[in-house]
Design a protein around this nucleic acid. Structure first.
Length: 1044
RNA sequence: GCUUGGGUAGCUUAGUUGGUUAAAGCACUCGACUUAUAAUCGAGAGAUCGGUUGUUCAAAUCAACCCCCAAGUACCA
């Protein structure tokens, strides 16, 4: 009837079997069919970059996604199950460049943009397939045929629609500004990119230079710079008008600098004059590179800047408006020239003399030499500071004046912040974090001078500098005046789209598309619209928007996915695109270190799946508090596997005996009234668990769910099954036995149904055997079942408390046996228990037999006073008292010996302080030791006492001997490969005392070992062994007889 | 620097609105069991809950300050 279950389970093999089963049976399709009319639950998948195989960190997020999807499908809800792949952007370009061995943009241009873009598309296709297969292996149930790709036309054109909206609101502008720039990428870096992993501590050479004042020979401003290469672009010097400055004399020259920064001066100096910064304003000076053609006609002067501080340098700041953001801003406020010295690869442009054609970042020493020869170098030094670098190349960024496109955040910021409040953030501090980012976020740079990505739909007029944004494919077609035939049928990517011209609505000239691609986060941010057919099927979109739930890795997404989702949704609909977000932290290695391929501690998903199995992985992910980083590895996998094995063992135990007795749960006639208290208890625990589980799933707290589950399987395994074993073993098929089967079956089934979303493989395997083997009408997979109903009638709080008391008392009893090395097999006469209240007394008396059975003790008595079993010994707490009374403690200790201990204990217990030799001693300054009297073993815990009588009578001793004998016989039966239910004949040859023991416990021995008769020897010896017991030898021989 | 989160046993973590003697798993020590067995079970030891001060009858929990860790954010000359 049932399928045999090995207790040596291979979870990984089982998972592969299950995967095949689901595929063959199209279980997932059946599930969707089953729920097609259900209430909608909208989950939105954050796209995974389809650029490499999955790592174990991806599996965490995907497990969470799957767990909640599965839970909601068990509630009968209808879902979209759409997975997403992130396709466009520099990430992919980087990998393709590596593949092709490219070093710079020039290599790409040579190779051909069309071919390069195709290679990017191909890479995405390749890895989206790999990730799809890996996700399936994880048990992630999604509509894999219909994953969305952010490179899809629908996605790109919906972004156009969004950009058009921004354009209509006047939010899009072309910024002519200084941006952090990577000379290797040949591209500007946006704020998101630098913030992520940009800043590094770097040491740079610094220069103190002398800027001689015009018309004041021998007088110079001292300025400081950490970027010597920018000196060639200097056009001004800035001071803070409120700071104190000084003019100092050194040798025969005069220098100006901030009063509080004179420490930087070399050697002796004399202060000539002191004044505030405004006195310096407007002074003209000779720039350090005035002879360069690029500097021709530039008037260098001192300007005002309130940000100048006295923390570093000289208090006079070198200003190069073509090389610094603030500098550039100052150039707009003041009438100073702007010089942009370098090209996109960081090379000096024409007009910089000797410097032209040289790499700006590698000429510090040349600059020193030049300044020195001009005698305007004051001194050099170095500084270690945090400096922005490229996340991709690690190269130091330069600051370069460029044209980039931006979405203005000034107005949007507040609108988005309002929307953020509509969302439930888990953990709740996510809200603050997002607001914090929004407060700090400056305008969003959406352009990138690269190749593979969204083509920004911005057309610019060379004639009148007008620009226009196109909002979709239809509009494009309408506006295009040139090149549509070649474009038709192509995706809106470079290079195809670059040839399209439209007519300028202002001057009528032909407009060109700007060559830039878009920020890839636009791609991911639009998905609540594009994938839900915002434009093509608005009805559908309205049904699924906003998403009920998203879950992603926390740290980065506040400024990435969450941010762009919010920004785009605010512009388009002024509402949040999701209701609840669950964030999870990062995966680390077992020691808590970052996983890196280069460090050799990273675990690819595939390896983990092959070695530990995905149920184990899912268990680990689910059990972890997602707020904290997860230390992932094979050691914690072993722990999780062990817990899963406990579940498996309960199952395997059930099957072993249910099979022997041909128990069929569908023919069950047991009613609740038939059940024993223990049965009721375990069912109560089970349904209490279901009740809490539902709440935990609903609140996205599966860490708690897993903890409760672990406690439950421990309860079932270590108490219910252990206490009930005999009911399963016994030969009569009575109601009591069926109650046990019924209970274990119901509990197990309920439990696996509750846990199916978390560990879908092992639960389906168990389900198919315990349920499907006997009930052909049941759904063919556990995943086609509903979430279990909470049987309130079966929940009994009082009963739970009752059994918990019993378990506690048994624990104490064991401890007191342990203390005197009295093994469980040796029966003992009596145990005394001291409890705390009447309830507990009632519980214990009621379930006295269970305690006695569990502890192998004959009698139990509840006592209120334990004094007759115990002696107290009172000592001083030297650690505490020593500090207080110092030397006197010795005399106090002596005096203590003369005081009656019992009286003292009495007083201490009431909390009275005691005076010894006029020293007041508080109760906690005593240490009370409990020593049980002879013939007792006592254990105290939290005011509960368990005291056992340790005297062993002859009768008890004999019983102990027989128990030992039974154990040996059982071992022999096993060695001889007898079945559990085989009957035997027993031959025992031994001394008289043991013979007597057997005689006095004959029936007991026979029942336990399924023995028909006991003699000195048997006719046919199936197995025989000589053992030693209590120093006497025993010869045991066994013969198997036919059953019956 | 600023913002947020955190610091609980050797390790990884629980600890819901303050409320008896701070919980679990792993590791460790000892023991039991041998009909869930390349399993299983029990017991023990182990924490002044980062520090100091305060509020309170009562603080791991609330407040203030300080010290560490993580994340975010700002960084210029």
């Amino acid at each position: 009837m049932y399928k045999d279950v090995s207790s040596k389970v291979d979870f990984i093999k089982l998972e592969h079997k299950q995967l095949k089963f689901w595929e063959k049976q199209k279980t997932f399709d059946k599930l969707r069919e089953q729920n097609k009319d259900g209430e909608r639950w909208s989950f939105l998948d954050g796209p995974i970059t389809a650029n490499n195989p999955m790592g174990v960190h991806h599996a965490w997020g995907r497990t969470l996604k799957d767990v909640f999807n599965r839970y909601h499908s068990m509630l009968g809800q209808k879902m979209r199950y759409q997975n997403g792949f992130d396709c466009q952007g520099l990430w992919v370009e980087v990998e393709v460049e590596k593949e092709l061995g490219f070093k710079s943009k020039t290599d790409i241009e040579k190779y051909g943009i069309e071919k390069f873009v195709q290679a990017c598309k191909d890479r995405v296709k390749k890895y989206s397939k790999v990730q799809t297969e890996q996700s399936k292996r994880l048990g992630y149930w999604m509509d894999w045929e219909n994953s969305y790709f952010t490179m899809a036309d629908e996605n790109n054109y919906t972004i156009w629609h969004f950009l058009k909206k921004c354009y209509e609101r006047n939010l899009i502008y072309k910024g002519h500004d200084v941006m952090p720039w990577c000379p290797k990428c040949g591209s500007a870096m946006s704020e998101h990119e630098i913030a992520t992993e940009g800043y590094k501590d770097l040491t740079h050479p610094t220069i103190f230079a002398k800027f001689y004042l015009k018309d004041r020979p021998k007088e110079a401003l001292l300025v400081w710079t950490t970027t010597p290469w920018t000196l060639a672009a200097n056009t001004a010097a800035a001071v803070n008008v409120d700071l104190k400055y000084v003019k100092v004399k050194q040798n025969d020259e005069y220098y100006y600098l901030a009063k509080n920064l004179t420490d930087i001066l070399n050697g002796e100096y004399e202060i000539i004059e002191e004044f505030t910064g405004d006195k310096l304003l407007g002074l003209k000076y000779t720039g350090p590179f005035d002879e360069l053609p690029a500097q021709k006609g530039v008037v260098h002067k001192v300007i005002r800047w309130d940000e100048v501080s006295e923390d570093d340098g000289t208090g006079i700041v070198h200003i190069a408006p073509g090389c610094g953001k603030e500098d550039f801003a100052l150039s707009k406020e003041n009438d100073i020239s702007v010089i942009a010295p370098i090209n996109e690869f960081g090379i000096y442009l024409d007009g910089f003399g000797e410097l032209t054609g040289k790499n700006a970042q590698k000429i510090a020493s040349e600059i020193f030499a030049t300044l020195k020869s001009k005698e305007i170098l004051y001194k050099r030094d170095q500084i270690t500071h945090r400096y922005p670098t490229c996340w991709r190349h690690g190269t130091e960024l330069v600051f370069r004046l460029v044209d980039e496109w931006f979405i203005s955040m000034d107005v949007l910021r507040e609108e988005i912040k309002k929307v953020v409040g509509e969302i439930t953030w888990i953990p709740s501090w996510g809200y603050d974090r997002e607001i914090d980012w929004l407060n700090n976020m400056s305008d969003w740079m959406i352009s990138k001078k690269r190749y593979w990505g969204l083509s920004l739909p911005i057309w610019e007029c060379d004639e009148c500098h007008n620009f226009e944004v196109i909002g979709g494919k239809d509009e494009l077609k309408e506006r295009v005046v040139d090149g549509w035939e070649q474009f038709e049928g192509k995706s809106p990517h470079k290079p195809y789209i670059d040839n399209l011209k439209i007519k300028c609505s202002k001057c009528g000239a032909k407009m060109n598309r700007i060559p830039d691609v878009g920020n890839p986060w636009l791609d991911a941010g639009i998905v609540p619209f594009s994938t839900m057919n915002y434009i093509s099927d608005h009805d559908y979109w309205e049904k699924w928007f906003p998403a009920d739930f998203i879950t992603e890795s926390l740290p980065g997404q506040f400024r990435n996915w969450f941010y762009v989702l919010l920004a785009m949704s605010t512009v388009l609909e002024n509402t949040a695109p999701f209701k609840t977000v669950l964030g999870h932290a990062l995966v680390r290695d077992e020691k808590g270190k970052d996983m890196h391929k280069s460090a050799g501690n990273s675990i690819p998903f595939q390896e983990a799946a092959d070695k530990m199995g995905v149920d184990v992985m899912r268990w680990i992910y689910s059990a972890h508090n997602p707020e904290h980083n997860l230390n992932f590895g094979y050691k914690i996998a072993k722990d999780a596997r062990k817990k899963m094995l406990t579940l498996w063992n309960i199952y395997s135990f059930y099957i072993t005996y249910a099979e022997i007795d041909s128990y069929d749960p569908t023919k069950n006639k047991i009613t609740n009234d038939d059940l024993t208290e223990l049965d009721k208890w375990v069912l109560s625990k089970t349904f209490q668990f279901v009740e809490k589980a539902k709440k935990n799933y609903d609140e996205y707290k599966i860490g708690r769910l897993m903890r409760d589950f672990e406690v439950l399987i421990d309860n079932i395994s270590n108490w219910y099954v252990r206490r009930s074993r005999r009911r399963f073993w016994k030969s009569e098929n009575d109601t009591d036995k069926y109650c046990a089967y019924h209970t274990l079956f119901l509990s197990l089934k309920t439990m696996i149904l509750t846990m199916a979303p978390v560990i879908p493989f092992v639960t389906d395997e168990i389900y198919q055997n315990i349920v499907l083997s006997v009930d052909k009408k049941a759904p063919e997979s556990i995943h086609l079942n509903s979430f279990p109903k909470i049987e309130k009638d079966l929940i009994d709080e009082k009963l739970s408390a009752k059994i918990d008391t019993i378990i506690k008392m048994v624990g104490l009893g064991r401890a007191s046996r342990d203390k005197k090395n009295l093994r469980i097999r040796q029966p003992l006469g009596k145990i005394f228990l001291k409890l705390k209240n009447e309830h507990e007394k009632e519980f214990v008396l009621d379930l006295k037999d269970q305690i006695l059975g569990e502890l192998n003790i004959k009698n139990l008595e509840i006592v209120d006073n334990v004094d007759e079993f115990l002696n107290y010994e009172v000592k001083l707490n030297f650690a505490l008292l020593g500090k207080k009374i110092g030397k006197g403690i010795k005399t106090v200790a002596k005096a203590l010996e003369t005081i009656d201990t019992d009286e003292l204990v009495e007083k201490i217990k009431t909390g009275e302080s005691i005076f010894i030799n006029d020293v007041k001693i508080a109760p906690n300054e005593f240490i009370i030791d409990i020593k049980e009297k002879k013939d007792y073993s006592a254990i105290e815990s939290n005011g509960y006492f368990a005291i056992i009588e340790t005297t062993i009578t002859n009768e008890l001793k004999e019983e102990g001997i027989v128990r030992d004998l039974i154990r040996n016989i059982q071992t022999l039966r096993k060695e001889a490969d007898f079945n559990v239910e085989d009957r035997i004949m027993l031959g025992i040859k031994t001394c008289k005392s043991i013979d007597d023991a057997i005689k006095n416990n004959k029936e007991y021995l026979k029942t336990e070992t399924l023995t028909k008769s006991i003699n000195k020897e048997v006719e046919i010896v199936d197995i025989e062994k000589e053992i030693k017991l209590n120093g006497e030898s025993i010869n045991i021989s066994i013969q198997k007889v036919e059953r019956g």
